[in-house]
Amino acid sequence: MMRTVSAAETAPTLHPWAVHAEELRVRAGRHLAVDGLDLALGTGVHGLLGPNGAGKTTLMRALATVIRPAGGRLTLLGEQVDGRADLRTVRRGLGYLPQQFGFYPRFTVREFVEYMAWLKEMPKAEIPGAVQRAIDRVGLAAKAGARMKTLSGGMLRRAGIAQAIVNDPAVLLLDEPTVGLDPEQRLEFRELLRDLGVDSCVLVSTHLVEDVAVACTDVVLINAGRLVYQGTPEDLATQGGPDDPGDSPAERGYSALLRRYRAEESR
C-alpha cells in the first residue's frame, strides 16, 4: 500500500540562521585573520565590506569549509562544522566563487559547469537542466560551447558564478564576483543577486560599496577580522557626514564607521 507523504516531509528544511558564527577565529597561515567574530545571516543578500587585509577572503574560505576555524563555533545550515571530518552534506547546500578559481582550459563553458555540478554530487538526471539554467542566468548561453581558455575576464567570472549557482545553493558565497565585469554586466549581476536572495542566503565580498548599497539587503563591515558594523544599506548611508571621504552617502558612511572604529581600538 502506498504511503501518503505529508507536506512537512516535502517542505524545505528551515534554520534560524543559514550562517551562524560565535567568537569565530580563523588563521591565514600564522596570522589570525578572523579574530572573535560574531555573525548571523539569514535569507537575503548580504554585502561583506572591509579594507584590504580585513579578513574577508579568509572568512569566506571558512564559510565555504575550505579551511577549518582555529576556534569559536561555526554553524552552517543548522550543522556545526568546526572540527567535523565529514562535510559532504553541508557542502551540497553551498555555492562558492573564490577570487581565483581553477578550471581546465579546454573545457567548454557547459562542460565546466557540468563538471562542477558532478563534483557537488547533484543527481545525474537533474544536471543538464540545472546547467542550462545556470548558464542562462549569467548571460552565457551564446558562449556555452566556447572553450574556457577563449573567454574574456568578465566572461570567465560569469562562468564562475554559473558553477556557484548550478546546485541552487541555500548558502551562496561570492568573493569579488564583479571583478572584470563591465558596467552593463554589473547591473545585470545586481538583478541576479536580488533574484537569488529571495530564497537563499547570499554573501558577497566586494570593495565596491555602491554595489552593496544598491543590491544588498544587509551590510557587514569587518576590520582586522572583527565585526565593525551590521545593518541595512540605508542605515550605512546615515553614518557619515559631508567631511568624510567618499563620493556617495554609502561610501561616506563606510569611511566614517572605519574611522570611528579605529579610533576606539587605538585608545
Rank of each mutant, 00 (worst) to 15 (best):
D199W: 10
D199G: 07
D199N: 15
S200A: 15
S200Q: 15
C201F: 14
V202P: 00
V202R: 14
L203G: 04
L203H: 12
L203T: 13
S205Y: 12
S205D: 14
T206Y: 06
T206D: 08
H207L: 10
H207P: 06
H207M: 12
L208T: 05
L208K: 00
V209F: 08
V209C: 12
V209L: 09
E210T: 14
E210G: 07
E210F: 12
E210L: 15
D211L: 15
D211F: 14
A213P: 04
V214T: 11
V214E: 15
V214F: 06
V214P: 01
A215M: 11
C216I: 02
C216L: 07
C216M: 14
T217Y: 10
D218C: 01
D218K: 12
V219P: 03
L221M: 15
I222W: 01
I222V: 07
N223G: 08
A224C: 11
A224Q: 13
A224R: 15
A224P: 00
R226H: 01
R226S: 09
L227E: 05
V228H: 00
V228A: 08
Y229S: 04
Q230G: 09
Q230H: 10
G231Y: 05
G231S: 05
G231W: 06
G231N: 01
T232R: 05
P233E: 09
P233M: 03
E234H: 13
E234P: 09
E234K: 03
D235H: 06
L236V: 07
L236I: 03
A237M: 00
T238E: 13
T238Y: 00
T238D: 13
Q239K: 04
Q239D: 00
G240E: 02
G240Q: 04
G241I: 03
G241S: 06
G241H: 05
D243S: 09
D244G: 02
D244P: 03
D244A: 12
P245A: 04
P245S: 11
P245I: 04
G246V: 04
G246K: 06
D247E: 13
D247N: 09
S248Y: 11
S248L: 11
P249S: 03
P249W: 07
P249Y: 00
P249G: 00
P249Q: 07
A250W: 03
A250S: 04
A250M: 10
A250F: 07
E251L: 01
E251H: 06
E251Q: 13
R252G: 02
R252A: 12
G253E: 04
G253N: 04
G253Y: 00
Y254M: 11
Y254R: 02
Y254H: 08
Y254P: 04
Y254S: 10
S255E: 14
A256N: 02
L258D: 06
L258Y: 11
L258W: 09
L258F: 05
R259E: 15
Y261Q: 14
